[in-house]
C-alpha cells in the first residue's frame, strides 16, 4: 500500500517498500552485467592499436589537409548522379508504397486475413535489408551503374514509406469517413474524400523525410559500384589519395546540409 498512516496523517509514497527494494536490486544487476561486459571487451581488445589511434588519426589528418580543391571539377557529374539516384528512387518507392500502405492499413485493407499479411511481408522484407546489400544484389542482376542504385534505393524505401503511411491511415478520424459514406459515395469516392485529405500532410512529410535519408544513403552506393559520388570515394581511397577523400567528404556534407534545409522548408510549408 503506497498510503501509510503516520502520526495520524496519511502519507503517500509512489512505491511500497518491497517495490523499492526490487527496483534497487534490478539496478544492481544491471550495473553488474555492464561491468562484466566491459571486462570481456577489454580482454578481447588489442590495446596497442587503441593507444596508437591518436597518432594514426593525426597522420591521416595531415595527409588529408588541405583538400585538393581542383579535384572538384571531376565531382560535379557524380554528385548530380547521386542526387538523381536519391530523387528517382524516392519517387518510385512512393508510387509503390501508396498501394501497399492501403492494403496494409487495418481500416482500408480489402482482407485482413489474406491481403494484409502479404502487404506487411512486403514492408518487412524491403525494410530489413540495407540498400547497400540491395545494390550488391542488383549489380549482379542488372549490372553496375546508376540504374542499379536507383532500384536499390527504391526497394529499400518502399517498406519505410509504406509503414509510416499505413500508420497514418490507421490514425485517421473515422467520423469523416462515416460522413462521406453516409452520402452514398462509392468506395473510391470515400477514399478520395474521406481518407486522402486526412493523410496528405503525413504523406508529404514522409516523402521529404525519405528523400533526405536517401541522399545520404546514395552517397555510399558507389562504394559497391552503383554509381554516384561513392564511386569516386572508393577510387580515391584505393589509391590513398587522402586530399581527394577529404574534398569528397566536404562535398557530401554540403549536399546533405542542403537537402536537410530543403526538406525542413517543405515540411514547414505543408504543416
Amino acid at each position: 500500500m503506497p498510503v501509510l498512516e503516520k502520526e495520524g496523517t496519511q502519507v503517500w509514497r509512489r512505491r511500497t517498500a518491497s517495490e523499492t527494494l526490487i527496483r534497487w536490486f534490478g539496478w544492481l544487476i544491471g550495473v553488474a552485467v555492464f561491468m562484466l561486459c566491459w571486462q570481456r571487451i577489454s580482454e578481447a581488445t588489442t590495446w596497442f592499436f587503441v593507444w596508437d589511434a591518436p597518432r594514426i588519426a593525426s597522420d591521416i589528418w595531415n595527409r588529408a589537409t588541405p583538400p585538393r580543391w581542383e579535384y572538384i571539377t571531376q565531382l560535379g557529374r557524380p554528385i548530380w548522379d547521386t542526387l538523381n539516384i536519391a530523387t528517382l528512387g524516392t519517387l518510385i518507392a512512393l508510387c509503390l508504397a501508396v498501394p501497399v500502405a492501403f492494403l496494409a492499413a487495418r481500416n482500408t485493407t480489402p482482407s485482413a486475413l489474406f491481403v494484409r499479411p502479404f502487404a506487411l511481408l512486403i514492408i518487412v522484407a524491403t525494410r530489413s535489408i540495407n540498400s547497400l546489400i540491395w545494390a550488391l544484389l542488383l549489380i549482379a542482376i542488372i549490372g553496375p551503374g546508376v540504374f542499379a542504385g536507383v532500384i536499390a534505393i527504391a526497394i529499400r524505401s518502399i517498406g519505410f514509406c509504406a509503414k509510416l503511411l499505413y500508420e497514418a491511415i490507421e490514425e485517421i478520424d473515422h467520423g469523416q469517413v462515416e460522413a462521406i459514406t453516409a452520402t452514398g459515395a462509392s468506395r473510391w469516392q470515400v477514399m478520395a474524400y474521406g481518407i486522402v485529405p486526412q493523410i496528405l500532410p503525413a504523406f508529404a512529410g514522409i516523402a521529404v523525410f525519405r528523400w533526405d535519408i536517401n541522399i545520404r544513403e546514395s552517397t555510399v552506393l558507389g562504394l559497391v559500384g552503383a554509381g554516384g559520388v561513392g564511386l569516386q570515394l572508393s577510387a580515391s581511397l584505393n589509391v590513398l589519395a587522402w586530399p581527394q577523400v577529404s574534398l569528397i567528404l566536404i562535398v557530401i556534407l554540403v549536399a546533405v546540409v542542403i537537402s536537410e534545409w530543403v526538406s525542413a522548408k517543405v515540411r514547414g510549408a505543408i504543416i
Binding site: G175, A179, I180, G194, L200, P201
Partner: peptide, 24 residues
C-alpha cells in the same frame, strides 16, 4: 446525416464539403 462532431473533411474547403453531399 448530421453528426455530433460535425464530421466535416477538415482539410477541404466549405464548398467542397457541401458538394461532397452530391457524391452519390
Amino acid at each position: 446525416m448530421i453528426f455530433q462532431e460535425y464530421a466535416l473533411v477538415e482539410r477541404l474547403t466549405v464548398m467542397e464539403n457541401v458538394l461532397s453531399g452530391r457524391l452519390g
